[in-house]
Nucleic acid binder design. Sequence first.
RNA 1: GGAGGGGUGGCCGAGUGGCUUAAGGCGGCGCCCUGCUAAGGCGUUUGGACCGAAAGGUUCUCGAGGGUUCGAAUCCCUCCCCCUCCGCCA
Length: 426
Amino acid sequence: MLDIKRIREQPDAVRDRLAVRGDPGLAAAIDRALELDEARRGLVAEVDDMRARRNEVSPRVGELKREGNEEEAQTVIREMRELGDALAAKEDELAGVEDALHTLLMEVPNTPAEDVPPGGEADSPVLREWGEPPAGDWERRPHWELGEALGILDLPRGARIAGSGFPVYKGLGARLERGLINFMIDLHTDRHGYTEVWPPLLVNAGAARGTGHLPKFGDDMYHAGEDGLYLVPTAELPLTNLHADEILAPDDVPVRYAAYTPCFRREAGAHGKDTRGLLRLHQFDKVEMMRFERPESSDDALEELTGHAEAVLQALGLRYRVLLLAGGDLGFGNAKTYDLEAWAPAVGRWLEVSSCSTYTDYQARRAEIRYRPAPGEKPEYVHTLNGSGLGIARTMVAILEHYQHPDGTVEVPEVLRPYVGVDRIT
RNA sequence: GGAGGGGUGGCCGAGUGGCUUAAGGCGGCGCCCUGCUAAGGCGUUUGGACCGAAAGGUUCUCGAGGGUUCGAAUCCCUCCCCCUCCGCCA
């Protein structure tokens, strides 16, 4: 969440940055937050004064009783009882205001970074492109057709078991999925300096609030209601909360984690176009990178993190482009996001295979993740960053469509061959 | 799932209603003493909120949340977590 002190001290700057998101309601939310904050501070002063009075006078009762002065003790008790009633009323009032302010702030998104342009999808600039479309002007088969023909993908049976959006990989398809996961994890841990983590796949509501998935986006997650748990839509939830309510020692920052997890997304209402094959799923695999950084190094860390995701695409030899997301497309907690899109030549589309973002201190404030800059100094909030490295399903799509041959076979990218065990899927 | 025992500061640990602004110890930091070191002495050491230019002041924080009381680490209720045993189980 946003820092109320920052809203108080620079309300116009906060409003201006939020305006980039294109939601006119946000300016009003800031105004409301300022009102609530002012009311809160007034009430805090009153409540503290009354508590100070009680702390000063109440111990007197004990002294009077020890002295045997029961009558005087009763007088003080009566006075304190009145004060206590008045205090309780003020405390309730204060709790109500604090609650309202907190609820409001939990629903205000992060402020976009200075270089994030306003507008929607069409306004997200393409920063760079890498690779070439595959050679040959024959007609490529879309991955779902090819996958079925090769016996490596079985969508109808997945639908029968769970529903549409729950794919079944078989034979070399399953092996390719597993190979991609292992290749990516190995690259990030061996070459990019991330520590591998194998986290829980269900998280509680507190963890979901910490990342910003609750309260606003509960409907996008699968919910195990009886136990109050949510199936992770991304490893971001468990990884970010790994250090919730902690103060990291000076030497412990930065922290880098990489994790493979399945991801579960309901995304109600997302049916319709662009959902064929593996393009949009309820369950897919992803390797995620996560970083806890000092504020002064978080900008550089975002560039580096994005480079680590690009390294996967380059190693796989897949054509891709990098977009800077415009304000209207930016995720709720994000200050800045680069999307990596791989080219899928058969469906003729760029597919988002990675989203690399900085949350600045937004998640850290919600999840209470701090660090001590130097021994003896006051704790500060870390900056959290995460990025896919990569989403496996759409990477699979790009591979099947990019590396297919006219005879219906698929060449295995060289770096994956040790993992898959064959050069070609036939 | 059942039974029992626990959760106190960076760590250990005392504390069953006021004299606790949480004893004592360990560790950390600072200073003193000592030609070095050891030992010793003194002080300091959770995090947040509010007021203040600052110095400083007030307040909250003993797993979490409610309650009782003039007053709660302490009494009551609910929940969470840890340990032991039993049951079930890959």
